[in-house]
Simulated scan of single mutants.
Amino acid sequence: MRLVFVATVVVFCTVAFGGWAFVDSSYQSQVGWVQDQPVPFSHKHHVGDDGIDCRYCHTSVETSAHAGLPPTHTCMSCHSQLWTGAEVLAPVRQSLASGKPLVWHRVAQLPDYVYFNHSIHVDRGVACIECHGRVDTMPLMRRAEPFQMRFCLDCHRDPAPRLGPPDQVTRMQPLGWSEAQKRAYGERVMKAHRIDPKQLDNCGICHR
């Protein structure tokens, strides 16, 4: 009986620890993972080196729930003149010729039961780097945050430090403000827009 008891405790602890480790693992959260793409698009090159604003490709991020993915003609607005014969861009040229859009695979994908609206976050000054990280340093786009429920709730329960000037949302470098300055600015934004963390904590905000 003692052996059975000890074995049961060991199995229970192993399963419990394994479950906790899985939930916090990058395998489950996919933090740091990249997705195979039809073209190895480098945000580091386009954003970091060339200084292209996020909204040039993600055109609906300010007006829609979805940020949008660039159509082929957006790519060709530059690559009809630059690197026109590059082998790595062959899928882009084929897409333009055939009229069949490239199929980009989302890196920051939320479950279907989660409602997220990009436009309201951008309008309130939540910077791209808060969720997507420093994409200007990513040769291949990787997931920067876990996008688990607690990640969203941490922000919804205390949004002030994450609210900045709306005209700076696509800025990749931090503003250089102190924690006190960020909180003070965020609290002014919350007051102006009547942002109540108690309401943001409501299940119906994200699960509709």
Rank of each mutant, 00 (worst) to 15 (best):
C75V: 12
L200W: 03
T72H: 07
T84C: 06
A90E: 11
P70M: 07
P101C: 11
V114A: 03
M149P: 00
H79E: 05
L69K: 07
R55M: 04
W20T: 00
G186Q: 08
G133H: 01
C54Q: 03
L153F: 01
E130I: 09
S25V: 08
P111K: 11
C203V: 15
M1W: 11
Q173E: 15
W104C: 04
R143W: 08
Q173V: 10
H46T: 04
P161I: 14
D24F: 10
D112K: 09
I120T: 08
I120N: 14
L96A: 15
V114Q: 10
V189Y: 09
Y115C: 13
Q81V: 05
C206K: 05
R150Q: 14
A184D: 12
E87S: 13
P111T: 08
W83E: 10
H207E: 00
E187G: 09
Q37M: 01
G125D: 12
K44G: 11
V189E: 03
H105D: 00
P101S: 08
Q35L: 01
Q35I: 06
T8G: 15
T137I: 00
V61E: 02
H58P: 15
C206P: 00
Q173G: 06
G186T: 10
Q181A: 15
G164K: 08
S80V: 04
V11W: 08
A192D: 08
I195N: 08
A180E: 15
W177I: 00
R194C: 01
V88K: 11
S26N: 14
G133T: 07
C155A: 07
C131E: 00
M138Y: 12
A180S: 13
E145A: 08
R157L: 15
R208V: 03
P40C: 12
G48H: 04
F22V: 14
V169Q: 00
G164F: 12
Q181N: 02
S25T: 05
H43F: 09
D50V: 03
L153G: 00
V39C: 10
G133R: 06
R183E: 12
H207F: 08
M190Q: 11
V39R: 12
C152M: 15
C78A: 05
P197K: 03
D154E: 13
S29R: 09
F41E: 00
L96V: 14
Y56E: 12
Q35D: 01
V107Y: 09
H121A: 12
A67W: 11
P166S: 14
S29N: 05
V4K: 07
G204C: 03
Q30E: 07
L89I: 09
G85D: 13
H156I: 03
D123I: 07
C57Q: 04
L82H: 08
E145I: 01
V114S: 05
H45N: 05
S26F: 06
Q30V: 01
F147G: 04
K44I: 07
R188D: 06
W83K: 02
